[in-house]
């Protein structure tokens, strides 16, 4: 059987928020290492990759590798029934066709369980090559969400240009042009508030705002976000999930044709 108990249930609620705008359904692949999910969005433009390590759970048991196809809309409805303070347990019998979510209130005076049917999803797993990125930018996640929201008013694409001085986000369209420049933080006193750039070579790439905005639904998971860029390879937008894992979004740059 499979059983994973997460003391900080709110993390799973936030993970749902990070996934459900882009994905309708996905397979949750469970092994003794933890839970992994990888899926392309409905238009097959972007890719989402989630990893939750077994060690991050209060209790984790996976007798046999298990892939649980879930409708994320339904799963989101069930997770909305959990309070932020609840302990959440996911469990399933081996080769079961349902999964059960158990929500325990902190003082155990209220225990809820919800059983959901599983789906048969065709397993398509993409190989993601190890890449040494030209630029890696770490910035406050709320800052990145604000930039994406503000600039997407100007155009459907955003140019992200990175040099060793800083990073510039630009968008242009019918109403005009917007530019936001973030300087590399001089002193890094508060880690999560800092803008830290590691640059092998300057890069300037164009991305579709609508996907970037969907990625920022993960903002509540982490105070900072990391953007990794190289010419002609997909951008990686990564949000760490406490000490248990991460969610990564991949999006190809737009190219002048």
């Amino acid at each position: 059987m499979f059983e994973a108990r997460l003391l900080q249930g709110s993390l799973l609620k936030k993970v749902m928020e990070a996934l459900k705008e882009l994905l309708n359904e996905a397979a949750w692949d469970c092994s003794d290492a933890g839970i992994q999910l990888q899926a392309m969005d409905n238009s097959h433009v972007s890719l989402v990759s989630l990893n939750l390590r077994a060690e991050g759970f209060d209790k984790y048991r996976c007798d046999r590798n298990l892939s649980m196809g879930m409708n994320l809309g339904s799963m989101s409805k069930i997770l909305k029934c959990a309070s932020n303070e609840d302990i959440i347990t996911i469990k399933a019998q081996d080769n079961a066709d349902t999964v059960t979510f158990v929500f325990e209130s902190p003082d155990q005076d209220k225990v809820s369980d919800y059983e959901m049917k599983l789906m048969n999803l065709d397993q398509e797993h993409l190989g993601i090559p190890e890449t040494d990125y030209a630029c890696t930018i770490r910035l406050p996640s709320s800052e990145f969400a604000r930039i994406c929201r503000d600039l997407s008013q100007f155009g459907e694409s955003m140019v992200i240009s990175c040099t060793k001085e800083g990073v510039r986000f630009s968008a242009t369209g019918d109403i005009g042009t917007g530019n936001i420049k973030l300087a590399q933080s001089a002193k890094v006193d508060k880690e999560e508030e800092a803008v830290v750039i590691e640059m092998q070579e300057p890069v300037s790439l164009t991305f579709a705002c609508r996907y970037l905005n969907s990625f920022t639904k993960a903002t509540s998971l982490s105070k900072s976000v990391q953007l990794s860029m190289s010419p002609e390879v997909p951008l990686v937008v990564e949000y760490k999930i406490e000490d248990i894992g991460h969610v990564r979004y991949y999006l190809a740059p737009k190219i002048e044709d």
Partner: peptide, 14 residues
């Protein structure tokens, strides 16, 4: 115009 490539142009099926 700018073209949006899909992710499958970069990552191959395992």
């Amino acid at each position: 115009t700018v073209a949006q490539m899909g992710i499958l142009a970069f990552f191959t099926q395992d």
